[in-house]
């Protein structure tokens, strides 16, 4: 089995990728507290102005500054990525720990439920949930957390079951340790590397899902999202208007790539690789 390594030896590529992630986070944070990129709703020039001084990434079909819209889009991707990752890992861990430590009937029921939830393809669940509820960032986070926890559940459950047969856990039980104590002091420390990796991988997954949701208009309606920008300007490519697509796809691909490289470095255990 792959044993994830704890943060620390990320290597050059991993460190660069982590720096990239921090950069994206700072960019989104600055936009959120209102330091820059606040004029993303107003027209600053003629429509489809090509990149140049005044509008560094050009303008969109309504003459709005694409640089400001791209920076605001980072807020959506990061919020859904972080929220979705934390939500699904938390839910999967809680249920997995419950199933693994309790065993018997609880385990049967939860495992059956997981099989059923995992059997419905993610696209159906996510688009259905996001469009039936009113579209928005919180809906996207909720939809991702409530439907995509099954993978985390399975790995945490397996680890909890393995722990149940370990001596230190048996000793703790013999001394009268309750479930909460066992989860807090025995299971969580054991799971830390696994949880960190799951978080990063879930972040990658959630960001990609957000792009697809936004493409179908099921993500944020108030903030410009990269997925929505791609949907809006895909047909303009044929007229030679490439900058809206570039402004949406380059940061989206970079963000996912950074997170993916960090995740790879965390799980990298190849001899000499």
């Amino acid at each position: 089995m792959r044993r994830p390594r704890v943060l620390g030896s990320l290597g050059l590529g991993g460190t660069l990728a982590l720096a990239g992630l921090v950069g994206f986070a700072l960019l989104a944070l600055g936009a959120m507290i209102g330091l820059y990129a606040q004029n993303f709703e107003q027209a600053v020039g003629p429509e489809h102005l090509s990149p140049g001084p005044g509008a560094w990434l050009g303008t969109d079909a309504l003459g709005r500054d694409l640089l400001a819209r791209t920076i605001q889009g980072a807020r959506v991707s990061l919020a859904v990525g972080l929220g979705g990752a934390v939500g699904l890992v938390a839910l999967g861990t809680a249920l997995g720990a419950l199933a693994g430590l309790r065993g018997r009937a609880v385990d049967r029921v939860l495992a059956g439920l997981t099989d059923a939830v995992a059997a419905v393809p993610p696209v159906v669940m996510l688009l259905g949930a996001a469009l039936v509820l009113s579209p928005g960032i919180s809906t996207a986070i909720l939809a991702i957390s409530l439907t995509q926890w099954t993978g985390v559940f399975r790995s945490i459950r397996a680890e909890a079951m393995r722990m149940r047969s370990a001596d230190h856990d048996r000793a703790a039980v013999a001394m009268g340790a309750g479930y909460w104590h066992r989860i807090r002091w025995h299971l969580l420390p054991r799971l830390r590397p696994l949880l960190i990796t799951s978080l990063v991988l879930s972040f990658v997954y959630a960001v990609k899902i957000e792009a697809v949701l936004a493409f179908f208009g099921a993500s944020s309606r108030t903030l410009p999202s990269w997925g929505r920008l791609l949907a809006e300007s895909g047909s303009e490519l044929a007229r030679g208007i490439w900058w809206p697509i570039a402004a949406a796809s380059v940061p989206l691909a970079l963000l996912v790539l950074c997170a993916q490289v960090v995740a790879d470095r965390l799980t990298d255990d190849e001899p000499g690789g």
Binding site: A211, V212, L230, A231, G234, I245, S249, A253
Partner: peptide
């Protein structure tokens, strides 16, 4: 493969079509 995987399917389809 990593770069391909990091590129959202939305990007691949839109740019591929173009």
């Amino acid at each position: 493969a990593t770069i391909l995987m990091s590129t959202s399917s939305v990007i691949i389809v839109v740019i591929g079509q173009y």
